[in-house]
């Protein structure tokens, strides 16, 4: 017992140090950008600086946030998962299907609860299955993850579309739908979910042998294999993890939209890659932090919220997201050139 508390204590103190170091020093540029954006919108957009804005921000961020986390984990290993949206939709469809066929208006609260639980378990199991299958295909065939996940995306989307005939499934029970709008001390439940998942993912990637192996694989998979690490298992693990995060995204989606469909959120697929890269994830693998990703997501969401209140179209927002990524990449490319203009300050390069 004492052992457990000890572990818990050391775990918690690490968590705190993690949180403190999680304020990303390495993302000073992004941080500055975020602050400038918030200040700028507060000045120019009436009512931007309000509790309402903050709350709508917290309602809108979780879906994209969770999907981006699902994309980031494979990116760290030098791969990517194009099937995240398809997985999320199918899981949401399955849960919606179970809930609406097994719950009738006459169902008692107990039955409803049991069925919802059953639906969640089924949705989770589906994601687990998809993740394991994807991971195994990638780990054991050695085919580039772009191709494998392009195939699984097509397959999963195809099955969803075939079974639903392209229609949306609605009729989620009240009890479940309410959670989408529920708050804990004023903070939307879905946002709490995002924070928890992000923290767990961050700790797993930074602090566990599995997470470190992911980054190592992203930098050099053969050298990692030679270092007595079961790289295949790690790859299966990382795609399973990605798929499991999709389950949480499916929960958020179902709770927010009160319905599920094969073509919800499809436009988010490429945005998740954009967010990850903006947040400092190396598209070739090996480097990236959850903190940076969250910062990037906050920037994207602030732009979106601000422009919405400004009365600008959603399309313009996406265009500006793309522009921001190009701008940040340019700033990164230019930095050494700009630094080269300044006189060197000691410390000779190799």
């Amino acid at each position: 017992m004492a052992d457990l508390t000890n572990n818990l204590n050391s775990g918690l103190s690490e968590l705190m140090s993690r949180l403190r170091s999680g304020v990303p020093g390495g993302h000073a540029g992004l941080m500055a950008l975020l602050i400038i954006l918030v200040l700028g919108f507060s000045v120019f957009v009436p009512n931007f600086a309000s509790v309402g804005t903050l709350q709508s921000f917290m309602y809108q961020l979780p879906l994209l946030g969770l999907l981006s986390l699902a994309m980031m984990a494979p990116l760290l290993t030098g791969g990517l998962n194009l099937a995240i949206i398809a997985t999320t939709n199918q899981s949401a469809l399955l849960m919606a299907f179970i809930m609406r066929t097994m719950i009738t208006p006459e169902s008692s609260a107990g039955t409803t609860g049991t069925v919802i639980l059953l639906a969640l378990v089924a949705g989770l199991a589906l994601c687990l299955l998809i993740g394991l299958a994807t991971g195994m295909l990638i780990a054991y065939t050695g085919v580039h993850p772009i191709l494998i996940t392009l195939g699984t995306k097509s397959l999963i989307d195809g099955i969803s579309i075939y079974l639903t005939r392209g229609m949306a499934l609605s009729g989620v029970p009240e009890a479940f739908a309410r959670t989408g709008a529920a708050t804990v001390i004023g903070i939307p439940l879905v946002f709490v979910l995002l924070v928890i998942v992000a923290l767990i993912v961050s700790i797993v990637l930074r602090r566990t042998p599995f997470g470190i192996a992911c980054a190592m694989i992203g930098s050099n998979i053969e050298a990692t294999r030679y270092s007595a690490i079961d790289t295949r298992r790690v790859l299966v693990g990382v795609y399973t993890m990605s798929s499991l995060i999709c389950f949480f995204a499916a929960l958020v989606m179902l709770a927010t939209f009160n319905s599920a469909s094969a073509d919800y959120a499809q436009s988010y697929l490429l945005v998740t890659i954009l967010a990850a890269v903006l947040g400092g994830v190396d598209p070739f693998g090996g480097f990236g932090t959850v903190g940076g990703l969250m910062l990037a997501l906050a920037i994207l969401q602030v732009i979106s919220s601000g422009f919405n209140q400004f009365g600008l179209s959603n399309y313009l927002t996406v265009a500006i997201w793309g522009g921001i990524l190009i701008f940040v990449a340019m700033a990164q490319t230019m930095r050494p050139y700009l630094a080269g203009l300044l006189p060197p300050r000691g410390g000779s390069p190799k």
Binding site: I273, Y315, L316, V318, A319, G322, I326, A329
Partner: peptide
Amino acid sequence: IIATIAMMSVSFSLLMY
């Protein structure tokens, strides 16, 4: 891949806008 994703977002969104 990143550059063209960004360009796709920009050009298609501007078109729709």
